[in-house]
Amino acid sequence: MNFSVVWDNLPYLLLGAWPDGPLGGAALTLALSLASGAASALLGLALGIALAMLRQRALRAALLGALAFLRAIPVLMLIFWVYFLLPIAFGLDVPELLTVVLALSLVGGAYLAHSVYAGISSLPPGQMQAALALGMTRWQAMRRVVLPQALPMMLPSFVNQWIALIKDTSLAYVIGVGELSFVATQVNNRVMVYPAEIFLAVAVLYYLMCASLDVASGWLLKRQPARAWQEPQAD
Rank of each mutant, 00 (worst) to 15 (best):
P95A: 07
G109V: 07
P124F: 00
L54I: 04
V75N: 04
N160F: 13
P125F: 02
A62E: 14
Q186K: 12
N160C: 13
S121P: 08
I88L: 11
I73P: 02
I120S: 04
L171A: 14
A184S: 13
A150H: 04
M77I: 11
S121T: 13
V183G: 05
P124A: 11
R144D: 06
P74K: 09
S121W: 08
Q186N: 09
A89C: 12
L98D: 15
G126V: 01
V101L: 08
F69A: 14
S170V: 08
L76Q: 11
F80S: 07
P74D: 04
L78C: 01
P156H: 03
S115Q: 07
A89R: 15
Q129P: 00
V159L: 11
A113G: 07
L112W: 02
V159I: 13
K167A: 08
L64N: 07
L85W: 10
T99C: 10
I88P: 02
P152C: 02
A103K: 02
F69Q: 06
P74F: 04
G91L: 01
L51M: 10
I79Q: 12
F80H: 14
A52M: 00
S181Q: 03
P95V: 08
V183L: 08
L85S: 14
W139H: 09
V191P: 03
V174P: 06
I73C: 05
A66W: 00
P152V: 14
Q129G: 03
E179G: 08
L165H: 00
L165E: 00
V107Y: 06
I166R: 06
I73H: 01
M142V: 09
A68M: 02
F84I: 14
Q186Y: 14
I49C: 04
M153A: 14
I175Y: 12
H114W: 03
F84A: 15
M77T: 04
L123F: 01
V145D: 02
Q161R: 07
M153F: 05
E179W: 08
W139V: 03
A66Q: 09
V183F: 11
A46P: 01
F90S: 06
Q129H: 08
M136R: 00
R144M: 12
